[in-house]
Amino acid sequence: MIEAKEVSFSYDDEETNTQKIVVDKLSLTINKGEFVAILGHNGSGKSSLVKLFNCVNIPCAGKVYVDRLDTTDEKVLFDIRSRVGMVFQNPDNQLVATIVEEDVAFGPENLGVPPLEIRKRVDDALKAVDMYAYIDAAPHNLSGGQKQRIAIAGILAMQPEYLILDESTAMLDPMGRREVMDTVKRLNRQGMAVILITHYMEEAAQADRVIVMEEGRIFMDADPKKVFSKVEEMKSLRLGVPQAAELAYCLKKGGLDIGETVLTPEAFVEAFQRRIQ
C-alpha cells in the first residue's frame, strides 16, 4: 500500500526566485494490485507526485509511506526503490548497458542479488515482457516499444510491488503504445500494481481507477466511467475524453441519452442499438 498523507512538494523557481508548489497537501492511498491512471495537463504536478513514491522527490511537508516504510528514512531507500519501480518517458535515456540482458540485470546487480538468482530473474523478467528472444540484442537496434518493454523488464527484475509509468508511451507510435499497454495490463492481471501517467485518454480508460490532477491537488478520483462522463470538467482542465464518451455526451445534450457512460466504440454501438430499438 502506498499512502500519501497531506504531502507537499515544491522547488525553487530560479527565474522568479520563488518557491513553486507542485504538490499541495495531497492525501492518497494506492493498494497493492490496483491499476491507477493519473491524468493532468503539463505542470499539474502528476510527475512530481509519483516521484515522491520512490524517493526521487522528498516531501517538504507531510509523509509518504510505501508498505509502511517512510520515504524520508534513508535506511530504507533501496528497499523502497526496489518495491516501487519507475519507467520514464524517453526509452533511450534509461537503458544503461549495451546488451539487453546486461541492462535487465542492472537493478538486481545493484541490490547485491547472487549471480545465479540474477540469471533467473533476468530470464523471467524478459519472458514476462515477451522480449526473451532479444536477450543478446543491442538496445539501439530495437524499436521504441521494445526498448520500453526492456525498461519494464529491468524494473521487474527488482521484483517490485508497484510499477510506475511516467508518460512511458508519449514518445511511442501507436504500435509501440499498444505493446506497452498490453504488457502492463498483463502484469496487472498477474498482481502487479500499476500507476500509469499518460496523455492518452484511451489508455487511461483501461485502468480501474482514474485520478485527475490540477494545481498539485486531486481534482477527481473515481472509476473511468465516472471520470469520463464529466466531459465539460475534463475539457476545462485542458484534457479530453475518449471519442466514444464524447459522442454519447453530445447526444445526451441533444436529448438522446444512451444510458451509462461508454468508453469504447463497441460499448457505444451496443448501448446505442439498445436505445434506438
Partner: peptide, 21 residues
C-alpha cells in the same frame, strides 16, 4: 535523465554490488 533512472534502479557505486556475468 539517465542518472535519475539509474538511481531509481538502486545504483550506488560498487558497494555490495554483484554481477550477472
Amino acid at each position: 535523465e539517465l542518472a535519475v533512472a539509474m538511481e531509481c534502479r538502486c545504483y550506488h557505486g560498487d558497494q555490495n554490488r554483484t554481477k550477472l556475468r
